[in-house]
Design a protein around this nucleic acid. Structure first.
Lengths: 261, 261
DNA sequence: ATCATCTGTACGCTATATTGGACATAGACG
DNA sequence: CGTCTATGTCCAATATAGCGTACAGATGAT
């Protein structure tokens, strides 16, 4: 799952890696599970999982919830996450920017980042339309499926990108394969132009706009996106892009600034 | 620190415990530190800390930031925390409630919980006054120092409370000691009345109001508080308490409700 | 009643993670 | 120049964590 531990089969797994595998698994499932179920579904020894779950429970990293001995992510994680959010305090400005974007365009606006080697939607503001387009927050999505994905890996070399992205992630939900060379070409194009737009390759009715939010190193630390119906996207392309770029510019220096006293 | 691991001296520490000790320490410090500094300040072997820090870096639990090899809490923690927040989705309603409270009373309103055996402010909304009263979000504070503390331990037995709260936490910031028996009496009073108010014992100018937010088990899962200048608090006592109780009632069923699709 | 499945606990073996200390480098300071 | 501290890496010794496996209660199907 996390591409770190299954390098060699048959080896013993390290407790820490297993622990975070459990946490990631629960996050992905988005529901409380019994230790037994966790063990079965991630393919880990039951005794190890029980041991780890108990350890994590004692530390407040996991919590009993949902009854029947089921566990889910715990309060301590919330506090740690809040500390991260506070340190790189993009969130406050971010919400405001998304709100403005959604108001101006009436389209769904998203703030996206990489989570390891996957793409994920961190914040979202739904647009003001009768049929709204939305996605799940915090779900892991293969990088090549998304417009933002082109921007978020653009600081890497071609070779680096292909080792970074799991090869099966080039398989689209329909089953067709995306040519990695074609993907790389789009990455370079996105890097040159400073944005990327396309008719989404994961459905048949949306058009996606993505612009990078730069960190101080000049990399794309995140992206701002609009997800629109295809005809609206094409009709308002220039205006939407301009709005997005303004919005991204207002965030560009925000990340990674500590606010120590 | 975490009251879990230092039971017996001289033993080897478990990697997982050490790891979370490091994370908690960084959260407490609220700044990036070098592995060396972490080792020195938490009193752990340098080699172990380096090993763990590297592991955590590889998993995205820690991140390099601040230069010079300094590390701080990582993005993965943010995602895990967001998943927790999403599952027990008190946050959205919570912000709204705090905003309303702050508007109605013009005083500082807080949402507080326990983090292990400490009290912590999770969310805050500053009041509309020329000199605003505020506190740091996410800092760990001894339970006996706070009005909310009386409510947050009220479901426990007296004996349980005294083992749960570290004895040195009864020492107030000025150096005086709070009598544990007096504290227990206040806990029982708070439990009976369903709220607790007092002139803060950690400063000389504030009055604190706290009411519990109940979970489905009837425990105080959190508290809503108002922090006011003493004279305003006394003058508006009845009105403030009524507002707080209304607000808490509107949150009472909210926690622990999953929003699965 | 019998069997199968799911669940949690207990225990011993051994691969290995944790640890202390040695080593290397770089700067500060006199 | 030598000496001291701060920093990071490497390595071998051994306490122990992860694992397989056996055990036991609960539940439900036949």
């Amino acid at each position: 799952m996390d591409a770190v531990l299954d390098e060699a089969a048959g080896k013993r797994a390290r407790g820490l890696d297993r622990a975070f595998e459990i946490l990631d698994f629960l996050r992905q499932k988005r529901q409380a599970l019994k230790p037994n179920e966790i063990a079965a579904q991630i393919g880990a020894p039951r005794s190890s999982v029980y041991e780890l779950v108990n350890l994590l429970l004692r530390n407040g990293i996991l919590e009993f919830t949902g009854g029947e001995g089921r566990v889910y992510l715990g309060r301590k994680l919330y506090f740690l996450g809040a500390a991260y959010e506070n340190h790189f305090d993009f969130t406050r400005e971010c919400e405001a920017v998304l709100e403005r974007l959604a108001d101006e365009t009436r389209e769904t606006a998203q703030f996206c980042m990489l989570d390891g080697n996957k793409y994920t939607v961190v914040r979202m503001r739904e647009g003001a339309r009768p049929f709204r387009i939305s996605t799940d927050i915090g779900q892991s999505v293969p990088i090549p499926w998304t417009a933002s994905g082109r921007l978020l890996v653009a600081h890497r070399t071609d070779e680096d990108i292909l080792t970074f992205i799991p090869s099966q992630d080039f398989r689209l939900p329909g089953g067709e394969w995306l040519d990695p060379q074609h993907f790389l070409a789009e990455v370079r194009q996105a890097e040159r132009e400073g944005f990327f737009t396309f008719n989404s390759i994961v459905d048949s009715f949306t058009h996606c706009f993505a612009v990078p939010v730069m960190d101080e190193g000049g990399h794309a630390a995140a992206t701002l996106c609009l997800v629109t119906p295809r005809d609206d996207g094409l009709a308002n392309r220039d205006r939407y892009l301009a709005r997005l770029k303004e919005a991204a510019a207002s965030l560009n220096h925000a990340p990674t600034r500590a606010k120590r006293g």
